[in-house]
């Protein structure tokens, strides 16, 4: 059991290295210009994927076996959680409806059924982690689980234009969330370090160029936690912050990072799914 928990973590850096080697080997072998371009594109994709995954790749989900005596308990808990997760599905279905209003009634019903099945899967995944004490260690997001399954179904069932429109809407929503998190980081810095307007602008711009999506989870996953009477320092993004601080702010920043650096606060599971979503789907889905 303990081997299961530690071995993927130990393997992960080697997987990253292996992925990089595989990616770069394509470019080395390529003799033709077209092949070289394709290899370069593939490298960029692999590197982009690695950067996007951020720390999630380095620390893969913790695996834990479900004991026999937990099976029933997990099933009961999963049933309870379905009720909590349904509003998440309804909200996502609303976005699908806004983007894909040409879906025919049969496909709407199919999509709805896939959505409810995704809720069951997400509830089960959540309950398993909850009852095997893996929440917080294993960054499982039930909302993402539901959205991922729904997105795959939309791509299959909707017309190409509508599927593209939904994918674009999802991408724009992710971009909005990234922007909100970046601005929240600067606001937190400003509360602590008294930045000038020029410093706020410069840090926000630098955060945008060095942005890693995994930071959203890391920042939000710590909620309102405080250590040593400080909020958690957003020191994952230190490279975008430090060049813009004056000497006094830099000294205070160092004190803050020592007192409440992000390494001191393991991310905890954010229970922000509690009923915050549409309570029912639009009648359009069952027409």
């Amino acid at each position: 059991m303990s081997g299961d928990v530690t071995s993927p973590r130990q393997r992960a850096p080697w997987l990253v290295v292996a992925a990089l080697v595989v990616a770069t080997s394509g470019a080395v072998r390529a003799d033709e210009p077209d092949a070289a371009r394709q290899a370069a594109e593939r490298d960029a994709k692999v590197l982009g994927w690695l950067l996007q995954q951020g720390r999630r790749v380095i620390a893969p989900p913790v695996q834990a076996e479900v004991r026999n005596d937990q099976t029933e308990q997990i099933a009961q808990q999963a049933k309870q959680m379905e009720r909590f997760f349904q509003p998440m599905l309804h909200s996502e279905l609303e976005l699908v409806r806004l983007c894909c209003d040409g879906l025919d009634p049969g496909d709407r019903k199919r999509l709805l059924a896939i959505g409810y099945k995704a809720v069951v899967t997400a509830a089960r995944g959540f309950a398993e982690r909850q009852l095997t004490a893996r929440l917080g260690r294993d960054p499982y997001d039930p909302r993402e689980e539901i959205r991922k399954r729904l997105a795959a179904a939309v791509a299959e069932l909707a017309s190409r234009e509508e599927a593209t429109a939904y994918a674009a809407a999802v991408e724009r929503r992710a971009a909005r969330r990234s922007e909100a998190t970046r601005v929240a980081i600067v606001a937190r810095l400003d509360r602590q370090l008294d930045l000038t307007a020029a410093q706020r602008r410069a840090i926000e711009a630098d955060l945008a160029t060095t942005w890693q999506p995994a930071w959203i989870w890391e920042i939000e996953g710590r909620g309102q936690m405080r250590i040593n009477d400080y909020p958690i320092a957003p020191d994952q993004a230190a490279a975008a912050i430090e060049p813009h601080l004056d000497a006094e702010q830099a000294a205070e920043w160092q004190r803050w990072c020592r007192a409440a650096g992000s390494r001191m606060a393991p991310p905890h599971f954010n229970w922000s799914f509690d009923g915050q979503g549409l309570q029912q789907v639009d009648g359009w889905w069952t027409q």
Binding site: A169, R177, T181
Partner: peptide, 11 residues
């Protein structure tokens, strides 16, 4: 950003 999740807003 939270309303995005709660309501399923588009851009």
């Amino acid at each position: 950003s939270k309303l995005d999740d709660s309501l399923g807003l588009d851009q």
